[in-house]
Design a protein around this nucleic acid. Structure first.
Lengths: 140, 140
DNA sequence: TGCTAATTAGCAATTCATGCAGATAAGGTT
DNA sequence: AACCTTATCTGCATGAATTGCTAATTAGCA
């Protein structure tokens, strides 16, 4: 997603207001590769701005997603995760620690078994063990 | 997943009991490629066995999944879907009608951008428009 | 037939997300 | 700088999907 400054302009242009709550969320999301949930973002926001509502976090995330600044992904953790990286990429989820990593594929896989389906999007979720967790297991 | 008869043996062997409720669900799931939700299965079961509990449906689905007879998938429809096809395959979801189709890929895509992650599983969700829905749009 | 442990049904509880409404504040206008 | 319109915020209620809990029931073996 774009920088907080660019988003400020984009929101005003779209007739949306730029509130302190939104500016905080812009900052918390910018360059954030942790794939946070709405709840974890709310926790982070609360420590800077006590009293900010979880409802506001959801609302702003929805707005950003509609504007294409944010991608929401489902990786089986029970809640939605938000990804400010909107380039064409996929995700690898560690079964041990649950961390989500961005990954890219060299070539889109070719479909088989379905005659007549026009694909507009494909998303791959890899599961396995991340480097940090395999190191932890090895040292035990 | 295996046939109702084979599952009956497997359940008894595992120390689990084979109840009429479970036998019905075995039959409803066998060769079912509609990727039903717990709720749609409960509806189907209710028309045959009025009074069967949604809780029992969930319980049996969980048991079957733990035994590897069933795969549970998430395609962004809000609720889990269950797939008795446990071969290595992926899914294509129609954005118009929501139907889920089994698909196979000729070659697993090669990862890029992650040094140290041992992949144990990869699942691809394709989105787009199925043949039936594109035909519907064309005839309008 | 009887015993025991697994299962069922029904309801409560939980989690994640959205709907709603009154109070508030952004930001263009005067 | 004061004002006005409208979007936004907060808090709470609601909804949807799933799991926890428990008394009553039943499968399946002895």
């Amino acid at each position: 997603m774009r920088s907080p400054e660019e988003l400020t302009v984009a929101f005003r242009t779209a007739g949306l207001k730029v509130t302190p709550q939104r500016q905080l969320l812009f900052r918390l999301l910018h360059d954030n590769s942790s794939h946070p949930t709405a709840d974890s973002l709310h926790s982070a926001a609360t420590s800077v701005m006590p009293g900010i509502s979880l409802r506001t976090v959801y609302q702003t995330l929805t707005d950003l997603a509609h504007m294409g600044e944010l991608q929401s992904i489902e990786v089986g953790s029970g809640s939605l995760r938000f990804d400010p990286n909107v380039s064409d990429h996929h995700h690898a989820v560690c079964d041990d620690c649950g961390d989500v990593h961005d990954v890219y594929v060299t070539k889109a896989p070719v479909l088989r078994g379905l005659d007549d389906f026009s694909v507009s999007d494909a998303h791959i979720v890899y599961r396995g063990q991340c480097g940090a967790c395999s190191a932890l297991v090895a040292q035990k």
